[in-house]
Amino acid sequence: MEDFKFKSATKIIFGKGAEDTVGEHVAKHSRKVLIHYGGEYLKEFGILDRVIQSLEKSGVEYVVLDGVVPNPRLSLVYKGIKICKEENIDFVLAIGGGSSIDSSKAIALGTKYDGDVWDFYCGKASPKSALKVGTILTIPGSGSEMSESSIITNEKGNLKFGIDCELIVPEFSILNPEMCYTIPPYLMSCGIADILSHLFERYFTTTKSSILSDHLLEGAMKALLEVAPNIKKEPKNYDYCSEIMWLATVSHNGMLDAGRTSDWGSHRIEHEISALYDITHGAGMAIVFPAWMKYVKNENIDRFVQLATRVFGVKCENDKQLVANKGIACLEDFFKSLGLNTTLTEAGVPVDKFEEMAQKAVGDSEYVGRFKRIGKNDIVEILKLSV
């Protein structure tokens, strides 16, 4: 196990009707907030009205900014920053999934900065302060409700960059599994794929000994594989929704990769796909991860054998390659059972810009990823395996 620092700063309020208490939680930090969200379902199901009622009851003023879309846009972030500065807002309340939360975090950073908030995402500057952020999670998957991460798409150049910063870890996150009842089946499937991708990024490590984390990650994967088909059959089962929502949060709050390196090469590749073609992130990860696995498995075949046998139940055989390949095939079958595509062709994504995507993925670096350092040519080959 490697040296690490771990801090869990987010207060989790988990349970039925938890969003009705948001006013009292916000009031501890602010008297005027920006409510930031996307999706008419929040109005359709009365979620926005309940949030506003709770804020008003606690004497909290608010300004509303909607319009968040998957792969949240920098242009909307700029709009939110302008509102916060003009209205003297000191807290951002995100309602939604990862896109709303990431956009809110970007607004929180930009409001306290005199320059262009994009400076933080492209590495030109480091944030020194930020507004505080709270979240009401409605779509599990990204884990942004308890993480220090934010990923934003800049429409100019189709660039999708992220930042990790302790300043934007949410003060609190409200998780009501009943919110999952409003999620279309396809988006739930994308969320499940996103959760699994976060577990994989941590699982594929170069750390020699991290036994506890291995078992925690494998346990989370097995729980997800068990619950996923059940929630497809019973999308309004509170217990299943609870498991998915908490799995999403735990998979990305930093606890499961404490003391070990994580990879993140696959995420860099997918970001270029969704930046160019605007597909949902989880759907992109269902395409990229099997291809990445096929390309890098010989870097540490034993790790793939361990995944196949411990998580997917592949019987141990003398041929490690066969066992590893069966594990990858099980993963592809799982994604297909969720109604997700596992190739770019099936997803209708053009396959003529691999060189461009690979160059953007590595940027100014020579490689991405840690499990296996992959450069531009490697990424092109991985993308070819995903066709």
Results as ranks from 00 to 15, higher is better:
1 M>G: 13
5 K>C: 05
16 K>S: 08
20 D>C: 09
20 D>H: 15
20 D>V: 14
25 H>Q: 06
28 K>S: 09
29 H>L: 02
31 R>E: 05
33 V>Y: 06
34 L>Y: 15
37 Y>W: 14
42 L>D: 04
44 E>K: 15
45 F>W: 07
47 I>G: 07
50 R>F: 02
54 S>G: 08
54 S>I: 12
56 E>K: 15
57 K>F: 09
66 D>E: 05
75 S>E: 08
77 V>C: 00
87 E>N: 07
93 L>V: 02
105 K>H: 06
107 I>P: 11
112 K>Q: 09
113 Y>A: 02
115 G>Y: 01
116 D>A: 01
118 W>P: 00
118 W>C: 00
119 D>Q: 08
130 A>V: 14
131 L>R: 07
134 G>F: 10
138 T>K: 07
149 S>K: 04
150 S>W: 10
154 N>K: 03
154 N>Q: 03
156 K>C: 05
158 N>Y: 06
159 L>I: 15
159 L>C: 02
161 F>Q: 11
164 D>E: 11
167 L>Y: 02
176 N>A: 02
189 S>Q: 06
190 C>V: 09
202 R>K: 15
204 F>G: 01
205 T>Y: 04
209 S>M: 05
209 S>L: 08
211 I>D: 04
219 G>W: 13
228 A>I: 12
229 P>A: 00
230 N>M: 12
231 I>G: 02
234 E>T: 08
235 P>D: 01
236 K>E: 06
243 E>P: 15
247 L>M: 11
248 A>R: 12
248 A>M: 10
252 H>P: 07
257 D>W: 15
258 A>S: 14
261 T>E: 07
269 I>E: 00
276 L>A: 10
282 G>Y: 07
283 A>F: 02
297 K>G: 00
306 Q>T: 12
314 V>R: 03
318 N>T: 14
319 D>L: 11
323 V>H: 01
332 E>H: 08
332 E>S: 12
333 D>Q: 15
335 F>N: 07
336 K>Y: 13
337 S>I: 14
344 L>N: 09
350 P>C: 00
352 D>P: 15
353 K>P: 15
356 E>Y: 15
361 A>I: 14
362 V>A: 01
365 S>H: 10
376 K>H: 13
378 D>S: 05
381 E>A: 13
383 L>Q: 09
